[in-house]
Amino acid sequence: MLGATFTDVAIWIFYPFNGPAKAKVKFVNLPLGKIGEHIGDWEHATLRISNFNGELWKMFLSQHSGGVWIDACDLEFGGGGGGSNKPVAYASLHGHAMYAKPGLVLQGDDGVGIRNDTAKSKKVVDTGSGYEVIAAEYGDGDDGGGVAEPPWVNYLRKWGPKIDYSVDDDVKRIARLLPGPLKKAFVNFSRKIPDEVYGEDGPTGPKLKGNWSGDEN
């Protein structure tokens, strides 16, 4: 990767279900009914490791349709024998977007948006204790470094059903619960909710993602 300066190790995680979203409208928190629900959710984190000294340089955390790079010095570390050497990521409640620190990240602006809540917990997924290497690039020869892709990697259909439904009733129901100024703010926000949040549409597998091949952007 990057002229052989770094090696990127992508860690893919499949979540069977993406739960319903919750909105924050200033000081009021409201469940959004079916909005945000869908079956199947692929998320990933990428470790960028120096080829010169083997140290972790950065970690990419996927967040909804994008993501962000976090410098190693800004990450939390935990676990590991003899010290805390494993970078930590926090997956948001129901949404599974990954963040470097626990707390609330609001997907919106001016105090109105979809909540992405994370918190410390004793329930963790240690990706280093159980994993399968499913692909490799820049190996010796043309065989992907000798890594045979398991059959499921080449499953090119969606990992969940597509279900269309109207969310107008949910939006109207929530709006009725809010006083005037908050109602207007919520209705304006509802018009900006990304299309992928409406309806249920299972995701495609890792191999069809734009960051499967080449360097992580």
Rank of each mutant, 00 (worst) to 15 (best):
K120Y: 10
F6S: 01
N116L: 01
E149Y: 00
V133H: 01
S190A: 07
K122D: 14
E55Y: 06
P203N: 02
V68R: 11
E137A: 09
S65L: 13
H38N: 13
S92G: 10
P31I: 00
V68N: 14
V105E: 14
K209M: 10
F6E: 02
E132N: 03
G66N: 10
S65Y: 13
E55G: 10
N116Q: 00
S84D: 15
A175T: 12
G160D: 04
N53L: 07
I134T: 08
G81K: 10
S84Y: 14
I13K: 05
P179C: 07
Y155L: 01
R115N: 06
G205A: 08
V9F: 14
L47P: 09
V133N: 05
I134A: 10
S84V: 11
E137L: 07
P87R: 00
D41L: 02
A45Y: 06
P181A: 08
G80W: 02
G67C: 09
L30P: 15
V197N: 08
S92M: 06
E149C: 07
T118S: 00
L178E: 06
V124P: 11
T7K: 04
Y138I: 14
V88C: 00
L156F: 03
K86N: 14
G3Y: 07
D170I: 13
G40V: 02
I11R: 03
R48F: 02
V187P: 04
P181M: 04
W152E: 15
D164I: 07
V25N: 08
W212H: 06
W152F: 12
L56V: 03
Y15T: 11
K86A: 13
G95K: 06
W152M: 12
E76N: 15
F14D: 06
F186N: 13
F77L: 14
T46N: 13
T46E: 09
L156M: 01
L75W: 06
A136G: 10
V167N: 07
R48Q: 03
K209E: 14
G54K: 02
G83P: 02
P87M: 02
P16H: 03
K192Y: 03
L104A: 11
D71R: 03
N18D: 15
K34W: 08
E137V: 06
G210T: 14
G78E: 04
G67R: 11
K172N: 11
K101G: 10
P20T: 07
W69S: 02
D41H: 05
S121E: 04
L75K: 02
K122E: 15
G108C: 00
N154E: 08
D140R: 14
L61Y: 00
G33I: 01
V153A: 01
M1E: 11
A45Q: 02
I70P: 13
K172D: 14
G82K: 09
G141E: 12
Q107C: 12
E132M: 07
D140C: 12
I114S: 05
R191A: 14
F186I: 09
I49P: 00
D168T: 07
A89K: 13
N211C: 08
G95R: 06
D169C: 12
L178W: 05
